[in-house]
Nucleic acid binder design. Sequence first.
DNA 1: GGCCTCCCTG
DNA 2: CAGGGAGGCC
Length: 664
Amino acid sequence: MDSSSESFQQQPSQVYPFDLYRSSPASYSILSPLLHPNSASQRWSGYRQRQCFFSELPVCAEVGGEDAEVSGRREAAGGARVPQYRLAERGRGVASEPGDWSQDLMRVKRLRVDSMGRREGEMGRDGHRGRGSIAPMTREERSGDERGRRKESREERQRRRRELKLQFEETRGRLLELQRKVWRAYGEQQTEEEKRGGEGEDDGAIDEVAEMFSEGEGDGHLTGELSPPLCSSAKKHECALNGSSEVFSEAPVDLDVELNEGGMWLGCSLVQGEWESAGGGEKFAQALKKELANVMARVIDRVVRLYAADPAPAQAAALAQEPPTSRSRDPNPAKKPKPGTAPHVVEQAEALPLVIKRPQDKRNPLPEDRPKSTLIPQSNPSLPLLPLLPQPPLPTLIPPRNKDPFLPSCAPNPPALPLPLLHYTMQQLFARSLSTMPLHKDGLSNEPFMEFRSHNLSFPPLPLLGQLNPPLADRGRDEGMRAGGVGGLDGGEAALFLGSGEGLSPCHLKKAKLMFFYTRYPSSNTLKTYFPDVKFNRCVTSQLIKWFSNFREFFYIQMERFARQAAREGLAATRERALHLSRNSELFRILNMHYNKSNDYQVPERFVEVSELALREFFAAIQSGRDADPCWKKSIYKIICKLDSPVPDSFRLPGCPMDPHRMV
DNA sequence: GGCCTCCCTG
DNA sequence: CAGGGAGGCC
């Protein structure tokens, strides 16, 4: 198709676009780790490690007083327990990144020691100031009172800090939970993909996700080794944007130092002076709240945007994950169609009375052409998003695609739905299902849809729906069209998205139409073979048979119409031209429009031949006056029904086969 | 009778 | 495209 896969070949250094743990932990906000589950699983592992050993540490602020070495050992001990937490380690883990981890440990220790030193220094200064500013002999009593008050207020502050840290922990826990869900939803297969990525295959996908997440973000956090622990310029900007720059005018002290004993990371939203002073806790809480709100909004926004994004680049990225397959699309070389000769037909909505129909069905079923922006719901307009906060590099909150084989088998032509999830076409989902479907050995690799598969594999695994709303998603899978709803979808939308499993969907209709290119008279057994994802009963079978009956009807009507038109032509040359069915002819255009409305499948040459034969038969019958006989068409039907050709094996798979030549 | 197809109609 | 009637075939 194109060289898209090459364009996603990454240098090793590019594999981890966010490079989270090469920067000082102090350069990230408290939520940075939550936002950085890594585009690579090892980053996730690393993050989990940190989560482990940080959560193990006491929340109490006084931890900072403990011996750094002891603290280090505790960290190490926490780290040793990592494996049970690692979600995505599978074949990759700490061992693959021992350097980074130990470096991080050292950094943490160093920061902690710095913090202690700084604190002691300040306490010393305070004490000195106190001794110097208060006359030791003459104001002894007042000094005692003041000390008492100070002690009281300090205890109060410490109490507040503990409370705040507890709140921090709680919030962080929730975010972690959310992140885990998203991670599970989006798949934990990064490791496997990464392995293949060693051959440079899937870096593009990772990078694509990375790009998506880092888009519009400040790049200050992407700079490599050991960012300065204090506010970078970007962070100062962040402070300013947080409205705290004028309030916290002191030299900023990274709160990581203050808080990391509690297992938290916090950026430079606050400076130590304010934090320590009376009311600083309140400000701190406000700033924290703000940041949490921002980050939550962005997380949601990013997740939504990921699914709303135009699948094209994602597809391209995903292509690289699939082994290349043959470009030949027809098992029978004699029937191999010529590419690119069919006129483009504008996509239209279809009237599908028997098929589960939603009001949206009347709209354009292929939302690809719609502007992205309309597909991206603003998660919360009231929440400040990207512009308000120069963000740390956004993480691959959603890990790369899952290989979950248990996907709904049919992804119907998606109606234009507000939820970007439906942005993914049935073709994409169909292609996805390929990887897990048992296939006929012969011919499949030559199927058009196999080629499509090799070029279109970017879509989130449907288990995401299960994560978002497991019961409903399951219902959708189990009950097909009768799904009650998924996420923000209503029942029908969910059903359309989730595919069938039982009833017939627009996807099946489309597939049936494409099958008509090969077989005009399919037996019910044939239909069962080629609609494996349909639960056949009498009703469904008749409906499918009825579809083909309607297809034939339309076909023969057109043949008769054009045959009569040719018969009216006076000149033999004109007539001959009219009876030749080229891919540029009006008749072909009409047929293609009817059976291949989206024009994403190349009409097989065999169908063109059969159509022309039918046209000539009709013409001959009309010319000879046989059409006077009420049964004159039957002989033609007999001829045509013998011209059925085998349906490509790709149609045996659930979903809709796609012609790669049509892919843009 | 069951199934299939055609034909007509909406 | 669906519903339904008519006719043919097994």
